[in-house]
Computed example of a mutant assay.
Amino acid sequence: MILAISGVLTYRKHVWAYKMISGERNVELGEEANLRTFTFAELEQVTNGFNQELGSGAFGTVFKGFISDNQKNVAVKRLEKVLTEGEKEFQTEIRVIGRTHHRNLVRLIGYCLEGPNRLLVYEYMSNGSLADFLFTPENENRPDWDERIGIALDIARGILYLHEECEPQIIHCDIKPQNILIDGHGCAKICDFGLAKLLKPNQTKTFTAIRGTRGYVAPEWHRKLPVTVKVDVYSFGVMLLEIICCRKCLEWRKL
Rank of each mutant, 00 (worst) to 15 (best):
2 I>L: 11
12 R>K: 14
12 R>S: 10
14 H>P: 00
21 I>K: 12
28 E>H: 09
43 L>F: 02
44 E>A: 03
44 E>C: 14
51 N>W: 01
54 L>G: 00
56 S>C: 07
62 V>N: 00
73 N>V: 11
80 E>P: 00
81 K>A: 14
82 V>W: 03
86 G>I: 04
89 E>S: 14
91 Q>V: 14
93 E>N: 05
94 I>L: 07
100 T>K: 05
100 T>P: 00
104 N>D: 02
111 Y>T: 06
111 Y>G: 02
113 L>N: 10
115 G>R: 01
124 Y>G: 03
125 M>S: 05
135 F>I: 04
136 T>F: 12
138 E>Q: 13
142 R>M: 13
143 P>T: 01
145 W>I: 10
145 W>A: 07
148 R>C: 02
150 G>D: 15
153 L>T: 14
155 I>S: 00
163 H>W: 08
165 E>I: 01
166 C>Y: 13
170 I>H: 10
170 I>Y: 11
173 C>W: 13
173 C>Q: 11
174 D>A: 05
175 I>K: 03
182 I>C: 04
185 H>L: 09
190 I>A: 01
191 C>T: 15
194 G>N: 07
194 G>Q: 02
196 A>E: 01
198 L>C: 08
201 P>N: 05
216 Y>Q: 08
220 E>W: 09
221 W>T: 10
221 W>C: 01
230 K>T: 09
233 V>T: 12
234 Y>C: 09
235 S>V: 10
239 M>F: 04
243 I>C: 11
245 C>R: 06
246 C>H: 05
250 L>C: 06
252 W>P: 08
254 K>W: 10
254 K>V: 10
